[in-house]
Amino acid sequence: MASIEVIRGELADSHKDTRLNLQAVLEGGSLTPEQRWGVAVACAFAARNERLKEAVINEAKKALANPDPVIEDARAAASLMGMNNVYYRFRHMIGKESYSTKRPGLRMNRLAQVLTNKVDFELVCLAVSAINGCEMCVQSHEKVVIEGGLSEDQVHDAVRIAAVIHAAAVGLES
């Protein structure tokens, strides 16, 4: 069973900063443990590295009293953002008003079935959107979480986790 420590050990010396950052971003900070691990799990799904995903899920299961809803929401957020980030990034990149007026027609029923809480789910979506590079989605989710009572420090910490999880996946593949 993979762990974050095993993953850190597998990163080559050229990825020393990622090794150090991977430990640092998953400890403490402004996020609750559920927020921290929800972001980490969703970002591991988005980064598409099987060993990293397994390690992050294993650590979340050890760190959280009730990990199942956090992991399931993270899985759903990664999938929904995998779809939405492509669609809305296209609309933004193409820059034509005609596409902006078209109904997306993409089902997102899972948003009404969040197992943890709506604001934390939006924070997880924001982090995945940062990995996927969707400006419109990042802005939209950031607005929702700030209006929902989270702080800019919490947003910042979530995106730091996203950045380091993504870097770890790149490091493991290189």
Rank of each mutant, 00 (worst) to 15 (best):
L64V: 14
K61R: 15
P67C: 08
K53I: 03
R51E: 12
N58K: 11
D68H: 07
M81E: 15
L80P: 03
I71C: 08
R75A: 14
V86K: 11
N66H: 13
V56K: 00
K96R: 06
L64I: 08
N66M: 05
L80Y: 13
K62W: 03
I57L: 06
K53W: 08
K62G: 11
R89M: 05
E97K: 14
I94Q: 02
A60R: 01
K53Y: 06
F90H: 02
E54R: 04
N66S: 06
I94K: 09
L80I: 15
V70I: 10
A74V: 05
N84V: 02
R89V: 02
D68Q: 08
D73G: 14
A77I: 03
A78K: 10
M83W: 09
H92T: 01
G95S: 03
E72P: 11
V70W: 12
L52C: 04
L64F: 07
A60V: 09
A76E: 09
I57E: 11
V70F: 10
V86W: 04
A55K: 00
N66Y: 08
K96N: 01
V86L: 15
R91Q: 01
L80A: 14
L52F: 07
E54W: 00
E54T: 09
R51H: 12
K61N: 12
A60L: 03
A60T: 09
R75C: 14
V70P: 14
V70T: 13
M83Q: 12
P69D: 12
A60S: 10
V56L: 02
K96Y: 04
R51C: 04
E54V: 05
I71N: 08
L52Y: 01
G82V: 14
P67E: 10
E59A: 11
A76G: 05
E59F: 06
K96W: 01
K96T: 01
R51D: 07
K61T: 14
A55I: 06
A78I: 10
D68N: 09
Y88D: 03
R51Y: 00
E72T: 11
N84H: 07
P69W: 13
R51M: 06
S79W: 14
A78Q: 10
I57D: 06
E54G: 12
M81W: 09
I94S: 03
P67H: 11
H92S: 03
K53P: 02
Y88H: 05
D68P: 02
E97F: 08
A65D: 12
M83H: 13
N58F: 02
G95W: 01
L80C: 06
A63V: 08
